[in-house]
Amino acid sequence: MQNIQKFMCIYMYKLEEDLMNHKDELIKVSFQSDEANTDRPLKEYLKQHIEKSFSSIPEDTDITSLCFEGDTFTDLQAIKQIRVNRVLLPEDISDELKETIKASKSSVYTNPDLYLELKLDNELSYESIELKSTKNDSIPGSSIQQIVPEEWVIFIKHTGKNISITTGQYIHAINSKMQFPDRSPRPQVSFKAMSGWNKDNRIVKSNALCYEKDDDDNNKRALISDWQDVLSKRWIDVLFNATSTKANEPWFNNNMRKFILSFLAKYENLTDAEKKEFKERVESLILSDTE
């Protein structure tokens, strides 16, 4: 792991603790919608709070080592020197920095909710943070082409006078639910999913902060990398394994049943040569770019 990655693992964990100690301030923040990426007051509060009160890993931190998916790091002196130099809001990001963001990710570019400018020995580096908020639990996430699995997230659940906060990487907020899309799909993200992942896989023991691998990560990465294949397998499962309909079943399930019967009626009347030609033609039309 690079020093910046190690820094973010500990910094975001301690930031979560710090924000929980400032719940009274966060409760007063205006949440204008159920997605934090439109919440201007929350962005402004976090910018001010981080720059003035939490620009580094606390000197008195109880974390003396970091474990990440089997690797252990005990020399944390360098990362403790890293400072948050600035917190940039979307309008603060220059064209030059936008090019830096584009170069660092294979997904479609979007402005980060918060962009941390990190400084170590007069060298600058940058990390983006996604903000999510909800009154209940699950909300639509980012468009699947925009998802960066390792991007850090601050997830806030606010209900009346109560507020809960969890932090982590985007992939651990995905709850694997994805409705049939009318455009680019948006896998749900869930406060419960992220906080549950943290409870099971982000463990502090003997002053070591440990992130342990989750077997479900591969399923989520498959969803992000080839969502069309994932949806196709789900539809096949509906057609072959369903023996009865469910209450409030998606309309598309019924449409698939009608489609497959119409398709089979036509396909079964083809000759073997026509079936072969049909399959090869359909395969040739599948785009390599799944967008």
Rank of each mutant, 00 (worst) to 15 (best):
K233G: 06
K279M: 14
K43G: 04
T74A: 08
N21L: 06
E150F: 01
A222Y: 05
K246Y: 12
I27S: 04
I174T: 06
F240Y: 15
P140M: 13
V189C: 14
C9H: 15
E59I: 03
S33N: 02
A103P: 02
D39A: 00
G168D: 02
F259A: 03
N201K: 12
R183C: 09
D75Y: 09
Y170F: 07
Q228W: 05
V87A: 02
P140S: 14
K135N: 13
S190A: 11
D75W: 06
A103F: 09
D60G: 00
D217A: 01
K6A: 12
Y45A: 12
R183Q: 11
D71N: 15
Q146K: 15
Q77N: 04
S106Y: 07
K258G: 13
T245S: 13
S56L: 05
F31M: 07
L118M: 05
I129F: 10
N253M: 01
K213L: 00
G168Y: 08
D62A: 09
N3L: 05
S225Q: 08
E150M: 03
S206Q: 12
P58L: 08
C67R: 11
L97H: 11
N207A: 06
S94T: 14
K275C: 02
L88P: 08
D289P: 00
E69C: 04
K205T: 12
L231Y: 07
G160M: 00
K80S: 07
F191E: 00
F7Q: 01
I171K: 01
D113W: 12
N37D: 09
T166S: 08
E151P: 11
K205Q: 09
S232M: 06
M178K: 00
S55N: 14
V87H: 01
Q145Y: 07
E69W: 10
A222V: 11
M8K: 15
H172G: 15
D137R: 08
I4G: 10
E268H: 12
L46D: 09
I63S: 03
A208N: 03
K80A: 02
P185Y: 06
T167N: 03
E277M: 04
E150I: 00
K276M: 05
F252K: 07
T64A: 04
H49L: 01
Y267N: 13
W197H: 11
S284M: 01
D95W: 00
S225G: 01
K157M: 10
A103I: 06
P185Q: 06
Y267H: 12
I171F: 00
F278A: 02
I236M: 14
K199S: 08
E25L: 14
S284C: 00
M20K: 14
V87L: 03
F263P: 14
N219A: 15
I171E: 01
S33M: 01
A265K: 01
F240W: 11
E280A: 08
P112Y: 02
N21W: 01
N218Y: 05
S138W: 05
V282W: 10
S30W: 08
L114G: 12
N207C: 04
D289G: 01
Y11F: 02
P41N: 07
V108M: 02
Q81V: 04
D237T: 15
L76F: 14
S107N: 04
M12N: 06
Q32E: 15
L15M: 03
E51S: 10
T243C: 07
K246D: 09
D121R: 07
T100L: 14
M256K: 06
F73H: 15
L270P: 10
